[in-house]
Write a protein that binds this DNA or RNA. Sequence first.
DNA 1: ACGTTCACTGACCGTTCGGTCAGTGTGGGA
DNA 2: TCCCACACTGACCGAACGGTCAGTGAACGT
Lengths: 204, 204
Amino acid sequence: MTADISGVPPSPRRGRPGYDQETVLRRAIDLFNRQGYDGTSMGDLAKELGFTKSAIYHHVPSKSHLLEQALDEALDGLAHALAAARAESGVTANERLRHAVRGSVMVLVDHLPAVTLLLRVRGNSEVESQALERRRHIDDALAEMVEAAVAEGALRNDLPPAMISRLLFGMVNSLVEWVRPDGRYDAEALADMVTTVAFDGLTR
Amino acid sequence: MTADISGVPPSPRRGRPGYDQETVLRRAIDLFNRQGYDGTSMGDLAKELGFTKSAIYHHVPSKSHLLEQALDEALDGLAHALAAARAESGVTANERLRHAVRGSVMVLVDHLPAVTLLLRVRGNSEVESQALERRRHIDDALAEMVEAAVAEGALRNDLPPAMISRLLFGMVNSLVEWVRPDGRYDAEALADMVTTVAFDGLTR
DNA sequence: ACGTTCACTGACCGTTCGGTCAGTGTGGGA
DNA sequence: TCCCACACTGACCGAACGGTCAGTGAACGT
């Protein structure tokens, strides 16, 4: 945070080499997803990293700071994808919505651990509550896009638009429950399948 | 548990009146869903109930026992709905699948707090791991039903059946994130909307 | 009026939590 | 070779955790 102001140091490294913030964060997010944030102690994380608990605090100020960085990563990605879809001009509202869905899937796959963590947040602490509110804004904007596509006549109007939005993005978000970076499906293929099923349905 | 063996006592009640196990369980599940299981202390639950922490242990043997009862309630409900759908004869595999989806939505709405808790379990303790395995069996059976409907020619075959199953029940399960017992939508209407969107798609 | 039943209290247990701090030793730059 | 930046250790802190237990007092049957 404050250290960034001084800029990137010209010398590559000094003193004894070791872990960096980023590695600690990535491992922490993985553990949080496996055991839950509250179910993961800093001792657990230390064991995972192979050194003592106090060493963690050499890299990171607090447990909640790790959570905050992870949630910001996910929220920034989703907000960016949403903004890109909304900014498109010269296309129908329905096409913008499809791009928003596609963009959401891409971010979800690209930042899978962080987004997974975000979708499990319950608003227990101040950090979680703020993340929840940012997420609500994103969801509201997506619901607006659905509404526009319905008003345009592209989507079915026998269901409330809010319901459509919830089912659609409920399906998208459920990807975090089983998608793994195996290479079984890449983000593109996944986005295609989700949009196909959502817009055209399961029936042959 | 062991007290049930003696059967229902003939006298309605003795001594000082107070809470019963069921009330404690209901309140516990609500709290677990609001704050997470690990994020909820027995002290929190005591405060919610309006008496001391030690009083809880007069009704309930342990924190994990509360979780176990909740998860069993959800799993029993889902397993029952699944079995009912599978047992139907004289109908197509596709119709059995639709009934399974409908039944899942009904159970989800009927036992909303318990099912919500189940869908958030991460396998941290022995109780959670066993619940996770029971859930996996149910998911496998549902995937088989999807496969049968695809083989029958009723569902699209340009996507892997396993993928269809995951997206379909990902959408169903996402209901726990926003459905509330307001009376805004009853279980029937909800089941109709979900099946409509899933099978026929969003496009008009 | 009395005695029994029983929901409930308050002090307490050992353990684990997130976090602190005064060292320790390693390795690159000069 | 010396120096010092720096990653890291181990003992420790107060608080909170799940759970225990010897009481206490209220309400019923008799």
